[in-house]
Design a binder for these strands. Structure first.
Lengths: 365, 365
DNA sequence: CTGAAAGCGCTTACAG
DNA sequence: CTGAAAGCGCTTACAG
């Protein structure tokens, strides 16, 4: 038995048109029933809504609505490297949290845009968003241009000031300088520096100051420059008293490998300056595993002050940045651009603060 | 001086139409120049592309393209509570990471959909996505129905089997049972249970087993049932030998407060069963701060085996679940639905494993 | 209060 | 190889 042809039954892909036809009204009326209740009689509205329910239509197709309204209520987030590492990094997590907090109150959605190391930026080019937050992009990637070409409101985070775009960065250099100075004042003379990637290639191993020039991740370069300046000012010989180990990512497992490499090369620093807390935490773990006492044998310092930094044993000396506030401010900047309140580019710089904990110990005699 | 009218200059909001007009071709040809290079001569293509560049058109409007193609290349992720807590929770982070990994290889974007505690699900209803992953939804929220009403491929994670939707869950109950049994075998007779929210209200304080019935978060309920069953089997008196403290969220700060409350109430458990690692870690921190030795004075156990669990001092006894694998599998299920490979609902259950570390110590005498 | 119509920006089957 | 035209599903100013 066929169902009667005038009976309303669920449909596979109901649209506003189907509902209008079934309810015997125009599509405008259906739209109004859902979006502008005061534009039609309660009676008609009830009927439309009930027909919609029967058919299985629960509201406008979001894509069509977005096209018509010329807005998506969505902000894009692009992380300067693989999402896989971004989502695993506590500082990035805090940053994302700051954004989420700011967007949540406005009911905006956050689109996480993967940026594969293969340089394919199609996903960014084709993302349906009203604005973009670009977090810690490598300075030489096409990604930056792709974002600019979108001509959307955008905020570049952890990126140097550029007159043509709104940027947000952190006093990385002076924070790093203060941290290195702290270790120098404790009497250290032999330093191991642990950094993340310095160029687009992923080569793990001992590196040198010339590679730091490469200008890859802006904050990292600034931190390394801060370390170097303090060391130079203290007349530490950069070649003989300092060695740099370059990791391919910032995560504890890489910090461990850096320490293993120092020990295997029979270079035993009295102090380790890592470019991030995660690398520093890995360093502490590996040093402890190798039987060293931190800080008595080797002092270790990091950067960021992620939650884990105060939890590890010994608690980590580091440079604090407020990543969550950074996220909130990035979102605030973007929202103000989306609201049309602000037209011109802005540049903001957040403070850093030296946090001395036990991992750097007391003055060496 | 006005620019000559036939001169091509950058425009504010260039569209395919503007480019077509400026290049003297049809919009179809412009579209083909960008999307199907082999559909037109190299010559014309070059011209179109160069005109587009001059005008400042960098490719199709994503929303319009999505409408026409009837797909968004985007997967929605809905967290069962405020994104703020979701992004801060290590187990959720691992889960998200698993999803991101799976999506990244396909170039799909991930839309984080805030779900405010106020129950407003407009953002979910209006999200431009091809499918939805719903993570740990409260069992009684309208949210679940909103997702179903979207009639999109969807995966419900940490949700009980339902014939009408694809679900993914974990052996929470048996894992919890094994954990409680472990503590019982160590000779414990007085238990403090720390749980997260048991109902939609946020009331922090001592709770009881009747509230566990409330069926709020499925995995938490399962874990508590597992604990209770093991305790009952060991003839522990649930009222006299066990107290439950209910927190409003799962995070270390709340675990601390739970311990403070136990101590203030002069209830001193010999063993603490937390419903998550984060609560357990907070408990350990607070116990240490109050001068107790873990595990000698009080044993503490958690659930999840997040990275921090093995890093804290003493390392935490817990039940391991593979949150990242859970994310990968959720994404895999969804992708298979999006590809049209699978039509029917599926149900998958992941294993758990008891991980005994130092925080539960040795047998009590 | 309701409907006819325009149009958001694009892609694609089809005709030439 | 190129273009005219239809149409994706919706919202909104406007006319009645």
């Amino acid at each position: 038995m066929q169902p009667e042809s005038d009976k309303i039954s669920p449909q596979r892909n109901p649209t506003i048109k189907t509902v209008a036809a079934a309810a015997g009204v125009s599509t405008a009326t259906v739209s109004n029933a859902f979006n502008r209740p005061n534009q039609l009689s309660a009676e008609v509205r009830e009927r439309v809504l009930s027909v919609a329910r029967e058919i299985g239509y629960s509201g406008a197709n979001p894509v069509a609505r977005n096209l018509r309204r010329m807005s998506t209520n969505t902000v894009g987030f692009v992380y300067g490297q693989s999402l896989e590492f971004g989502l695993n990094d506590p500082a990035s997590q805090q940053f994302l949290l700051g954004i989420a907090r700011a967007l949540e109150s406005r009911g905006l959605a956050l689109l996480l845009l993967p940026f594969s190391a293969t340089g394919n930026s199609e996903t960014v080019r084709n993302a349906a968003v009203d604005g973009i937050i670009l977090y810690c992009p490598p300075m030489n990637t096409p990604l930056v241009q792709v974002v600019k070409d979108r001509r959307l409101p955008a905020v570049f985070v952890d990126y140097p000031n550029r007159s043509d775009c709104t940027t947000l960065r952190v006093r990385d250099r002076s924070g790093a300088h203060a941290l290195a100075e702290h270790l120098i004042q404790l009497g250290h003379k032999r330093f191991g520096v642990i950094s993340s990637r310095l160029t687009e290639d992923f080569c793990e191993g001992f590196s040198d100051w010339s590679r730091v020039q490469h200008d890859f991740y802006y904050p990292q370069k600034e931190r390394l420059i801060g370390y170097r300046q303090a060391l130079e000012e203290a007349h530490i010989n950069l070649n003989r008293q300092v060695r740099i180990f370059e990791c391919s990512h910032s995560a504890t497992s890489f910090g461990k490998r850096a320490i293993a490499a120092f020990l295997a090369a029979e270079f035993r620093p009295t102090a380790v300056l890592a470019v991030s807390d995660m690398l520093a935490i890995g360093a502490i773990e590996q040093l402890k595993a190798a039987g060293f006492n931190v800080p008595a044998d080797v002092a270790v310092a990091g950067f960021d002050d992620v939650p884990e930094a105060s939890r590890i044993e010994p608690p980590l000396t580091t440079v604090r940045q407020d990543s969550e506030e950074k996220g909130r401010r990035a979102a605030k900047f973007l929202l103000e651009m989306l609201d049309g309140q602000v037209e011109e580019s802005r540049h903001s710089v957040l403070q850093t603060e030296l946090i001395v904990r036990k991992s750097t110990g007391v003055r060496r005699t």
